[in-house]
Design a protein around this nucleic acid. Structure first.
Lengths: 222, 222
DNA sequence: GCCAACCTGACACAAACCTGTCAAAAACGA
DNA sequence: TCGTTTTTGACAGGTTTGTGTCAGGTTGGC
């Protein structure tokens, strides 16, 4: 999962970033709205954590523009204000949830999970497909009933594929989702991980098809 | 919009029901879990408002069963408890949101709107024409039900034609769409690809007509 | 009948992809 | 803290295959 944090408070930002990294997520950090817009334009985020009060404007302006341009990336608003009216304002502007500061990190995580689960359509988190059972929350993965331990990156790659099976993902897109902007990996890294994941998926009925020049696709084979 | 309210507190229930009716929604009311299950089985709801503490059991049990049986009706949990752990529990069980009592009615409405807005955001772009089904996202292409694997360039060419069928595309225009400025290909390359695509389209009712000196056009032939 | 425009099978080549190996980095354990 | 184990991604060499050009054939307009 790849997040974008828009927050100007340096200390809070680094705290959230390190916690999210610990959970195995990729997270980029923007300190102001200008940067945030640039990040959103280039990266492909699963979730945006948005502070309302920022040095160069109100986060809600950003939120309105974001929705107006038809992005459906979920947004969780981080707000210090506690007035009900402000909260409603954010929700009506298209926020998917809000958290009032100061907040418990466990709660932020839970809300992230909940929002993400919603977005992926069905609200149950365990995915089952073609002889493969995958529990992204626990990080468990089993093929034909036999549990397999995947490494972090392999797991995340699988997660991307399982979220929308049948879709083509270009290597660039996969890199976007697996890595944050500042680590620039070669496209070969993706090839390597596709190869590794393929080995794990061998006994199952899932396979990753290569579409030359287009990318990769997860399909279910007979 | 049709809602179901599961709530045992009579006063609160009637308050919510009347407010929702005022907003123009249809809302049914169940006072216990047994009734709720019956309502869900028969009616077709857009949203469920679920109290956690009910006379005949915990609302979360209902929620778990609801999700297990693959219903994707969004659920907003109404809870009197404010402990972080309880809230997390509900979200992880598949609730789409929660509201802690006592709550402002405006806030409940805002959350309903937010949840419903999320659900209705799907857009598919599959094109179907003359016995040909084309899914650009999955890269699937089938003629008369039979799947055909197209190569990168063939796919892109087809995409151009299908976007505006019936229109004439000059070879120059097609080259513009398929190639970047700095690779300068001969016009013959286009002819080659039109030929290749024609082979694939043979069993369908689509054909690419040549218009000498003008270009090509995709049309449907009885 | 002639010329230009178009079609097409074959082919060479480069781009795209795969994979084993390895050093560096990160996570882990004591 | 330091040493050990695991994970990670770059690299290089090998393999595959999509691609555009070419050459020769076909078609159509005048």
């Amino acid at each position: 999962m790849k997040f974008l944090l828009v927050e100007d408070n340096k200390d809070l930002a680094t705290a959230i970033v390190s916690r999210m990294r610990l959970d195995g997520h990729v997270i980029d950090h923007a300190a102001k709205l200008d940067d945030a817009s640039a990040f959103v334009a280039t990266g492909d985020y699963d979730l945006i954590l948005l502070d309302i009060m920022l040095p160069d404007g109100d986060g809600r302006t950003f939120l309105r523009q974001h929705r107006a341009s038809d992005f459906d990336t979920p947004v969780i608003v981080l707000t210090a204000r506690s007035q009900v009216s402000d909260r409603i304002g954010s929700l009506d502007l298209g926020a998917d949830d809000y958290v009032t500061k100061p907040f418990d990190h466990a709660e932020l995580e839970a809300r992230c999970r909940a929002v993400l689960r919603r977005k992926s359509g069905n609200s149950k988190s365990i995915v089952e497909l073609g002889g493969v059972v995958f529990d992204p929350v626990a990080g468990h993965f089993s093929v034909e009933g036999r549990p397999v331990t995947l490494r972090n990156r392999e797991l995340r790659l699988l997660e991307v594929f399982l979220n929308t099976p049948g879709q083509i993902f270009s290597k660039h897109k996969l890199a976007d989702r697996l890595y944050s902007l500042d680590d620039n990996v070669s496209e070969n890294a993706i090839e390597v991980y596709v190869g590794r994941l393929r080995k794990h998926l061998k006994p199952s009925r899932l396979r990753i098809t290569t579409l030359r020049g287009l990318g990769y696709r997860l399909d279910q084979h007979d």
